[in-house]
Simulated assay, not measured.
Amino acid sequence: MISPITLDALRVLDAIDRKHSFAAAAEALFRVPSAVSYTISKLEEDLGVALFDRSKRRAVLTPAGRLVLEQGRHILTATDELTRMVQTAAEGWELELRIAVDSVLDFAPVYALVAEFQALQHRTELLLSEEVLGGSWDALNSQRCDLVIGAAGEAIPGGIVTQALGEVDFVFAVAIDHPLRMQPLPLSAEVIRSYPTVVVADSSRYLPARSTGLLDGRSRVVVPSIASKIEAQCRGLGVGFVPRHRIDAELIDGRLHILPLQEPRPPQAVSVAWRSANKGKALRWFVERLARMRFDGRRGLVDRDGPPATPLS
């Protein structure tokens, strides 16, 4: 059965409801009033129901008419969305771009990039996610994402392109009232083992999980992200290494304190990564924009032509 409800009829019905009269709807649709009246009369005839209560002076929908209009608007919206998606794909822009951000990074610079992109092109849907340690490579390898920002360590093989960002500096931080602050400095690994360590769980689903900066304490508190690790250490639940650029506020308000170690953790190289087979315009825009950025150990992800780095304290 072919439905008598056409897109044109739905648009006419929508215009009448919004403009409150057949004449005003005709003007909005750049048609003569008789054409609008004919469209509605034909639809009513084909459906066998009245869509408007003609006993009223204004265009008032019947319950059946209201049902057709409300459901029809969903159809009109879906049709417009389909048109947008087809146009977007035809122009070489992805319908969606999935961006995984490594938990070691602050999301603020990524949000700034998203704002820049939206000012340029708002048709592509951006899906942001957070990954930890090997989870960034795992997300790219399993095609859970199209682009990784801040992937740590060596890239996985298999058609993956990388672009260096810089190195993340890690410091050993404890709560301001933690007993380790009373110990002789620099701290030895033996002294640290007496206290719980806060560890971020690797988010890999398929690749072997990675671990980094573990202190082999007597017990561990496992958390899902760097942000939660910082919070746990502020509360004195454990100790551990944290990215220096993520704890400025905690150092200023006194919730965390940096302690020197006999064996400090070396900086960690981070990269941007994507699959070479992906040629979409949105991916290319982000890759080219990120090429103009670098990772500053104190401030995080910044533009290369920004102010010079501040020496680490």
Rank of each mutant, 00 (worst) to 15 (best):
69 L>R: 07
142 S>E: 13
239 V>L: 05
165 L>N: 14
79 T>P: 02
230 I>V: 15
71 Q>E: 15
73 R>A: 10
267 P>K: 07
60 V>M: 00
125 E>K: 15
281 K>T: 06
13 L>V: 04
148 V>S: 07
283 L>Q: 11
139 A>I: 13
153 G>Q: 06
90 A>N: 06
38 Y>D: 05
195 Y>E: 10
4 P>G: 08
163 Q>K: 13
57 R>K: 02
74 H>F: 12
156 I>Q: 13
262 Q>T: 13
2 I>S: 07
108 A>V: 09
230 I>G: 04
121 Q>V: 12
229 K>M: 15
300 G>C: 09
240 G>A: 03
102 D>E: 04
113 L>H: 07
283 L>I: 08
275 R>T: 00
3 S>Y: 08
102 D>C: 03
131 E>S: 05
165 L>Q: 15
251 L>V: 01
87 Q>F: 08
170 F>A: 03
122 H>S: 15
259 L>V: 11
203 S>P: 11
216 D>P: 01
148 V>H: 04
304 R>Q: 09
264 P>A: 00
1 M>A: 12
262 Q>M: 13
297 G>L: 05
218 R>M: 09
194 S>H: 14
281 K>N: 07
18 R>Y: 09
299 R>V: 03
195 Y>A: 07
243 P>R: 05
51 L>R: 01
68 V>L: 12
236 G>K: 09
66 R>T: 03
218 R>I: 14
94 E>D: 05
268 Q>W: 01
125 E>M: 14
308 P>S: 14
127 L>N: 04
27 E>T: 14
170 F>R: 01
92 G>A: 01
98 R>Y: 00
216 D>C: 12
131 E>P: 03
271 S>D: 12
166 G>F: 10
251 L>A: 03
35 A>D: 08
97 L>Y: 02
3 S>A: 11
51 L>C: 00
141 N>P: 01
152 A>S: 14
206 Y>S: 11
105 L>W: 05
36 V>R: 04
24 A>H: 03
75 I>E: 08
240 G>V: 03
3 S>I: 07
18 R>V: 00
294 R>C: 02
27 E>C: 06
156 I>S: 11
281 K>Y: 02
50 A>N: 08
296 D>K: 06
